[in-house]
Simulated scan of single mutants.
Amino acid sequence: MEKTLLNVEGMSCGHCVKAVEGSVGKLDGVERVLVDLSAKTVAVEYNNDSVSLDEIKETIEDQGYDVV
C-alpha cells in the first residue's frame, strides 16, 4: 500500500471535495482519499499494483483541478 499527499489548486468548497473524493475513490486500488481544503491537499492510500499515481493525478485534473 502506497500513501501520497498531492498539492491541488482550485478546490474551494464542499462540491470540490465530493468531486475529487468521489472520482478518485472509484478507481480500482484506491483504498482511501481525504481532501483538506484549507491545506489544498489530497491524501491518497492506494495499491500501486492496481492504479498508478499518474492515473490518480489525471483523475483529479479531469475534475478541473490542478495537481502541482
Rank of each mutant, 00 (worst) to 15 (best):
G29S: 02
V42H: 04
S23F: 05
V30T: 10
V33R: 00
V51C: 11
S12D: 12
L5N: 10
G14F: 12
A19V: 12
V30R: 10
L53I: 12
M11W: 05
R32T: 15
L6A: 07
E58Q: 15
N47H: 14
E55I: 07
E58L: 07
D49I: 08
Y46P: 04
Y46N: 05
E45H: 03
N7P: 01
Y46T: 03
N47I: 07
V33Q: 07
G22A: 11
D66P: 04
V51I: 01
V51F: 15
N48R: 05
I60Y: 00
K40M: 10
V67A: 07
G29L: 06
Y46F: 14
V44Q: 06
N47P: 10
E58V: 03
E58P: 02
S52M: 06
N7G: 02
S52W: 13
L37M: 04
L53W: 11
L37D: 05
D36A: 08
S23P: 08
R32A: 09
V8N: 04
N48F: 05
V17K: 01
M11V: 09
V8H: 03
L27F: 12
S12A: 08
E9Y: 13
K18T: 06
V17F: 11
D62Y: 03
N47R: 10
G22K: 00
C16G: 03
V24L: 09
G22H: 03
C16I: 06
K3L: 04
A43D: 07
A39E: 12
G25S: 06
H15M: 12
A19S: 14
R32C: 07
L27E: 09
V67H: 04
M11A: 02
E2I: 10
V68D: 08
V51R: 11
E45W: 15
E45K: 14
E21P: 14
C13Q: 08
C13F: 05
V35Q: 02
T41P: 10
G25H: 03
S50T: 09
V67L: 07
R32F: 12
D66A: 07
C13N: 02
E31D: 15
E21H: 04
N48T: 07
M1E: 03
V51A: 15
I60Q: 01
V33D: 08
E58R: 14
L27Q: 06
E55A: 15
S12G: 06
G14R: 10
K40G: 01
A39M: 13
A39W: 14
N7L: 09
G10M: 11
N7D: 04
D62C: 00
N7R: 15
T59C: 13
T59D: 05
G29C: 15
A19I: 02
V17E: 08
Y46A: 10
E55M: 09
S23I: 01
V44S: 11
K26H: 12
Q63V: 09
L6Q: 04
E31N: 14
V17I: 14
V20A: 01
L5V: 15
E61T: 05
V24N: 06
S50I: 08
S23C: 10
K26V: 09
I60N: 01
E58A: 10
L6V: 05
E31W: 02
A19W: 00
N48Q: 02
K18L: 12
K57R: 13
G10Y: 11
V44I: 05
V35Y: 02
